[in-house]
Design a protein around this nucleic acid. Structure first.
Lengths: 324, 324
DNA sequence: TGTTGTTACGGAAAACGTAAATATT
DNA sequence: AATATTTACGTTTTCCGTAACAACA
């Protein structure tokens, strides 16, 4: 029994039970993998893989259990490397943050400079994507953490901790009828009134667009959405050229910078939302990841994060199929 | 990096940082262990062991963390063997039950025969001992489970699930003054009345003897304990020959079998007690262990046991010392 | 000075790659 | 026929034991 055998079994499962691909992925010969797995099965006294003649089809029942244990072992073996790196090169390493455009544009610029200053040797990279993609990135350990609103919650194997709350903001040109509303009037603005104007807002999948749709639908109002865009900059641009009323996420509106536009809070219409950070349970986090999290939100202390990770069931990437 | 290196590190820690002993325990040569560990440290890029010149003194700080991870890995590797045995020889294997005399004599006889009938190929062995010894047996995996009252609870790394409740019973000869009490009178018997007679009961450390002492002490009554014994059979024998009044655990009194003696319930004096079964968290349990547990108490279903084990922090046998 | 850990070296075992055979779709 | 797995076999590497050396207490 050795680690190599564990790797072979895990990779074979990941590659949909194709030994040839598994061998290629691990830069070794296919017969070697075959032999090693067979020896492993003999040693354990069970068959891990269900075979039809010579073709490997899936996991046997004992194989499914063994695969789970192997998964836990290999996760810890990976952690071993990270742990020692943590001590060997305390402040060096890589940090990949999965995020949506909104986070990359409006939130991360507030923390990355300070982070860079504190950890100059850490290579930071941003991976943009929509929330489901980001969740996958973290699960596959291509990203250390991911920041997004929406779907991030409730992905098995991921802990999703709240970073901050926000509400939508309606942006209009200063010469627009809504621009003259007092603060009180703005807070009493109804959906029906809003729907009288053409609307520019996010593409589906992003920054609470789903909520916007749901709210209109619940009120049985058909809004006139004249343009959908992936990011608030584009929305603001089109509002500025008079295309209509913009609905954007609060963090994307800065009265100081967006001088040409008036912003009206719209939390009473579209509710409050929580942007969360997703972390995979069971993986060792470098010290600087904890620091970044606390920079994102002072609530996210090491203790809070660890506790949340503790109580998150760990992901299992095996068991895509088990035999009769 | 390989499993052998993990074994070497773990064993070296267990043997109080003596490579020579660790090598002996693993049936290999001492230079081999030394070399392997050094290579492992080089690969990780950290020192695991604190050395004074050539003497290994303890764990470094990174070493303590690494040792914990190794512990988790090796636990899972051990589980791998058990898991495959479970499927390879579903109903074969060994089962060691740690228990006190009381359990071995009065409780286990009720379940072992049925268990043997269902799993004829499982070799059952009983390991008797006092509760602290039993806890250690389970922690060191010399016993699969342990059944006892008293201290079993709250041992780190062990889940202690309730099996049954019991109360003490006072046993007297039919010609004893207390023998004539009606059921109601018995329930109103006071400590002071009881203390007027010489008492025969358990040795310290066993079956709720501690509670008996505490109750008398709280009432500031000095009982006249004329004989202490490890098991109820002996106590009953001496009661029978007229030495005094016996106080024994409820499960040890059977009105049908113990015809020559009268039993009076004493729960109102000494409280109710819970006998528990201790299981080590993180170890894989063979199917037949679950079956035995459910035979002991129908409450202890597989789900209940698994849940209890899940929520029990796992033991760490490393980290006896860490460096500055 | 005895005990413990590291270095050096050589033989045995295993790990792994290539080539060939065999089975499956 | 094409793809995929196992068997066979030889080379390379790793593993591990003995012997010698070094350092601690």
């Amino acid at each position: 029994m050795n680690l190599q055998q564990f790797r072979f079994v895990r990779e074979t499962i990941r590659r949909n039970f194709n030994l040839t691909e598994a061998a290629r992925a691990l830069y070794t010969s296919q017969p070697g993998v075959s032999k090693s797995i067979i020896e492993f099965e003999d040693e354990l006294g069970i068959k891990i893989f269900e075979r039809h003649g010579k073709r490997i089809k899936g996991l046997t029942k004992p194989g499914a259990v063994v695969a789970q244990v192997i998964d836990r072992i290999m996760r810890e073996v990976d952690n071993l490397k990270k742990v020692s790196d943590e001590f060997a090169r305390r402040d060096e390493g890589g940090l990949t943050i999965g995020c949506t455009h909104a986070q990359a544009r409006y939130i991360l610029p507030k923390v990355i400079p300070a982070f860079r200053e504190r950890f100059p040797k850490v290579r930071v990279s941003l991976a943009e994507g929509n929330p489901p993609t980001l969740a996958r990135l973290v699960l596959e350990e291509q990203a250390d953490i991911a920041i997004a609103t929406e779907t991030l919650g409730h992905t098995p194997g991921l802990a999703a901790l709240p970073v901050y709350n926000w509400e939508h903001i309606i942006v209009v040109r200063p010469d627009h009828p809504l621009a003259g509303l007092t603060s009180n009037e703005a807070r009493n603005l109804t959906l029906a009134q809003l729907a009288e104007f053409p609307i520019v807002t996010y593409d589906r999948q992003f920054s609470g667009r789903r909520t916007i749709d749901e709210v209109f639908e619940a009120a049985r109002i058909q809004p006139d959405i004249v343009l959908e865009a992936i990011d608030a900059d584009i929305i603001k641009t089109y509002v500025d050229v008079g295309l209509g009323v913009g609905i954007i996420a609060g963090m994307a509106y800065d009265p100081r910078r967006d001088k040409g536009l008036i912003g009206l809070p719209a939390g009473h219409l579209f509710g409050r939302h929580t942007t969360r950070v997703a972390i995979k349970a069971g993986v060792f986090l470098r010290d600087y990841v904890y620091v970044l999290l606390e920079m994102l939100s002072s609530e996210l202390t090491r203790e809070v994060v660890d506790e949340a990770l503790e109580s998150t069931p760990k992901a299992v990437d095996t068991a895509r199929s088990a035999a009769s």
